Amino acid sequence: MTTPAWENVSDAFMRNDKPYGGGAFRIRDSEVMTLKVTGPDTPFKPASEWKNPEIAEHTEPWMNNSGERLSRSTASFIRGTLDSGMTRYFQQQAQDGAWWYSKDWAAQYISTGWMDFTRQEPVNGLAPQITRLWRSIDGGRTWTQLKWPEDRNISYLKFLDPQRGYAIGWGPNVWRTADGGQTWQAIALPPMATDYRKPRKQFDAVDLGPDGLLRVAYYVGMLGEVRLSSVVYRLPWDKAQFEPDVVLPDQVVVRLGSTEEPPGHTYSIYALSRLGPQQTDGDQNDNGKRTGAISMWPGHRNPAVRQLQTFDERYSLTDMDVGKRGVLLVYAGDSSRRGAPHQITLYSQDYGKSWKDIDDGMTQGGWFDSLTNTQYALYAYTLRKRQF
């Protein structure tokens, strides 16, 4: 198994868009689009204007207030090409954003979540979040705000096509639309998915398979005969209730992913997990280390789960991508390494049978194109890619 090599795509990627950052970028040939959530630009005065020559001063007083800076964060949709530059077509106040786009890039949905950090924190610590939802059908150039209750958070947008999809948010809660977001139906949740003590609880992982099956994963202490395990439930598009899929004993799921297969073909689901029971905040017996694992099962009914690989506990698993023809990427930090954190990419090109790791240094963002097995990484203004 040879190590794929990086090649430079651009040395000035998003250089002219301030504040700096690539956002959740996507690339198709020379075309680029991104959903970028950033704080406001906070420039400093010239050194000659500082009252104290050793203390830099912002140009405006509000820039010294962290609540003001957080409240002025924005979510932007930006589109263009690597050669001709980028244009911002959408911008709203937000500290969080979720999005979905069609394969031809003609349709996009964006949800934004904004909190006012200039106000005093509520007694329960749960500052109100204002959620809004938008849709574009012309490639992101013009946007229509959809009707959406502002107190319903959206963490994920998962769509089969521009008309049919799901919004998933705190609670957790699941809503379904079949008319392009004009109306939404609340879906009954699987057992033990909620906790009255945690009104902003989320699923540990969510995935929408190529056949339209929505899968959600969450940890349960006890559910019938299941103990201290992650459970995965699935929801067919034409059904109103979730049904059991698999149980992953003694592990906490970090990420779900599925292979992209043609209609009628069996596809695979992969789960990235941390082994052991779920740790609670303040647990004195928790040393922060977890042995990570990746498991797989086929997308049909009553599947058997195979654990493909366990990873050294020095790797803190953060994410996973599933590609074509047996390519799997797992992202992690290395707790044994001193100094600035580096991204470690663990990869398999044979369906998880064998693995190698690469130290990719300090990246400022990335994306994996699962249709072409191409990985992109951003180093300052330099955009690189490599093929698996």
Score class of each variant (00 low, 15 high):
D96P: 08
G85D: 14
I187S: 07
K356R: 12
L328N: 00
A240P: 10
E54H: 13
P122A: 03
P43D: 04
S316Q: 15
G80I: 02
V254K: 05
A167P: 02
Q108G: 04
F117L: 01
A377D: 02
D245N: 09
Y89I: 01
F44N: 14
P249R: 12
D151K: 15
L228G: 05
L346Q: 06
W105K: 03
K51S: 11
V216T: 10
P244A: 13
W134R: 00
Y347I: 09
N16M: 08
L383P: 06
D286W: 11
T266K: 08
T3G: 12
Q284P: 03
P303R: 01
L371Y: 09
N373G: 02
R274E: 13
K201W: 04
H58R: 14
D138Q: 11
T87D: 11
T374L: 13
D286V: 07
S136A: 12
Y379P: 12
A293M: 11
T266P: 05
I130Q: 15
V220P: 07
V174S: 11
T87G: 12
H342C: 06
R28I: 06
P244Y: 08
Q185M: 13
V246Q: 01
I187E: 00
F77R: 00
K158Y: 02
D204C: 06
K18C: 04
W355H: 02
S348C: 11
I187Q: 08
I358K: 04
Y196T: 08
I137C: 01
G39V: 09
M63K: 07
L346Y: 01
V216P: 07
Q241H: 13
G352Q: 02
D179L: 07
Q364F: 02
T291N: 10
D11Q: 14
S102N: 12
R119L: 14
S76Q: 14
E261A: 15
T42M: 09
G299K: 05
S30I: 03
G323Y: 08
D245G: 02
K356S: 08
R290S: 08
G212P: 00
Y351E: 11
M222F: 12
L256Y: 09
S73V: 01
Y379V: 14
